[in-house]
């Protein structure tokens, strides 16, 4: 039985956090996974469609990836601009974050949001608030993997 709620009472904190855990609804992980799988797959289908199209134009299969990325980034940015991508994201979760369209979304969304603070300290400075960490650690890990690969090949 609790008599006083004291901030520095470690046992009380532990008990309370246990109650919180019991009383908090669990995220619907299974449903989220299925939705993410389906929408993520559909986005990849669209990408594959463009890849096949560019290949059919006679572009080298390896180089056809570049125009495909460009088209997919455009679609992601466009859907963000007209306010649709966040609605997709609400249901798709990781399914719309992981593909390259999600990367476009993560840059366009803050760019739109911070336009009112000006083009330099608003858009310019805040555009990469979400994508920035992805780029930093993406580049860092690719350097480390590259080094490991190089050393193993010696």
């Amino acid at each position: 039985m609790i008599l006083v709620l004291r901030n520095n009472d470690i046992n009380l904190q532990k008990d309370y956090q246990k109650i919180v855990k019991q009383s908090t609804p669990r995220p619907t992980i299974f449903k989220n996974c299925i939705l993410a799988f389906i929408t993520g797959g559909l986005i990849c289908d669209v990408g594959q469609f463009f890849l096949n199209y560019f290949k059919s134009l006679g572009i080298d299969p390896i180089q056809a990836g570049t125009p495909t990325s460009i088209v997919m980034v455009f679609i992601g940015a466009f859907l963000t601009g007209i306010g649709v991508y966040d609605l997709i994201g609400k249901y798709a979760g990781a399914g719309s974050i992981v593909p390259i369209t999600g990367f476009a979304n993560s840059i366009v969304a803050p760019a739109m949001e911070f336009k009112r603070e000006g083009y330099v300290f608003g858009v310019g400075a805040r555009m990469f608030t979400i994508a920035g960490p992805v780029i930093v650690y993406g580049v860092t890990s690719s350097i480390i993997i590259g080094l490991i690969y190089y050393l193993l090949r010696l």
Partner: peptide, 17 residues
């Protein structure tokens, strides 16, 4: 939302809590 969390148009899922 923009001060405490994410830009509005970012496709995130809000937790049930």
């Amino acid at each position: 939302e923009r001060q405490y969390r994410f830009p509005l148009e970012l496709g995130t899922q809000r937790p049930l809590t």
